[in-house]
């Protein structure tokens, strides 16, 4: 089979699909964002959103900041756990069981998952009840719920499995012989992790970061259910414009702005990830070695 022909064949179904059902509406969104009070085309909406005195840039920054903290938290949880499962646990059964337990959380709808945090963090929630029962605190800690911390805890909960699965897969594919070689050359476990495992797992972390970041900037559930008065995030605002104010042009403008800001943040994330990977090991060499090595290891 001809190589070019095969290339196109693999891409066509999806490109055709999104061409018809996605790019077109998106183009419509883009056009609509330019229809303001003064007719079409106009920059009215963008002026309102980004102009002086607008609180939207602050909302946008808050949204991206929140999503980035969720990404970092997910990395902090998933990378050590994935490393432990993929490289420190001998039994495949244990690995499968742990991953399955985490995957089970996905089966519960996002709504139930999110509301459950009220029962955990609330005034008479699990945490406060247990702490009071143990005599650690006298008065319930009210700051646990209805604020940014609760939102981040729930968002991370809803998103970190993406990170865990991709990083686990990436680490699983690292040839154990690299680790052994590193140790034989006198590297301690920490060095092996930072200089060998992490750089080789970087593509997995990167994929995970996107999978965590993107749904997080466009979710409306957690801030509304757990956020109290801590302020709206961008997606909620977009929803309100589309479905409650029925102001589609303004909703479109906010969406375009969020897409652009999200894109910029992803780009920044990519640069930071690359820099970190470079810091922790010689990524270029290791990657090349990894990409041929992992394949032949099978």
């Amino acid at each position: 089979m001809n190589e070019t022909w095969r290339s196109w064949l693999s891409g066509t179904p999806w490109l055709l699909m999104i061409g018809c059902f996605f790019i077109l509406p998106l183009a419509g969104l883009l056009l609509m964002s330019f229809s303001g009070e003064g007719g079409f085309p106009s920059l009215d909406n963008y002026r309102v959103v980004l102009g002086e005195g607008s609180d939207r840039p602050a909302v946008l920054l808050r949204t991206i900041g929140t999503a980035l903290s969720v990404v970092l938290l997910s990395i902090a949880i998933a990378v050590p756990a994935a490393y432990y499962l993929a490289k420190c646990v001998l039994s495949a059964r244990v690995q499968a069981a742990v991953l399955a337990l985490v995957a089970v959380t996905f089966l519960v709808g996002p709504l139930v998952r999110t509301v459950a945090w009220r029962g955990i963090l609330g005034r008479s929630g699990l945490v406060n009840t247990v702490l009071q029962g143990l005599g650690v605190i006298d008065e319930p800690i009210m700051a646990l719920l209805y604020g940014r911390p609760a939102v981040i805890v729930a968002m991370t909960y809803n998103a970190f499995p993406f990170m865990l699965f991709t990083v686990f897969l990436a680490m699983k594919m690292i040839d154990d012989r690299y680790l052994a070689a590193g140790r034989d050359l006198g590297a301690g476990p920490a060095t092996v992790f930072w200089r060998i495992v992490l750089p080789l797992a970087a593509p997995g972390i990167w994929t995970g970061a996107i999978l965590v970041f993107v749904p997080t900037i466009s979710t409306v559930l957690e801030p509304e259910i757990l956020g109290g008065t801590s302020g709206r995030l961008a997606a909620t605002e977009i929803r309100d414009q589309f479905f409650h104010a029925l102001n589609w042009p303004m909703g479109s403008t906010l969406t375009i702005v969020l897409i652009v800001a999200g894109g910029v943040a992803i780009l920044a994330l990519a640069l930071v990830t690359a820099a970190l990977a470079r810091l922790s090991g010689r990524i270029g060499i290791a990657m090349r070695a990894g990409s041929t090595g992992a394949g032949s290891a099978r």
Binding site: I77, P80, C88, V98, Y157, P189
Partner: peptide, 26 residues
């Protein structure tokens, strides 16, 4: 050779608690 790493093991344990807490609660 596999060795015990207390830190990743602890994080994995904490992760399981975190994962299961809402499920147990509801």
């Amino acid at each position: 050779r596999r060795e015990f790493h207390w830190f990743p093991a602890a994080v994995t344990g904490a992760m399981l608690v975190y994962s299961l807490l809402p499920i147990v609660t509801f």
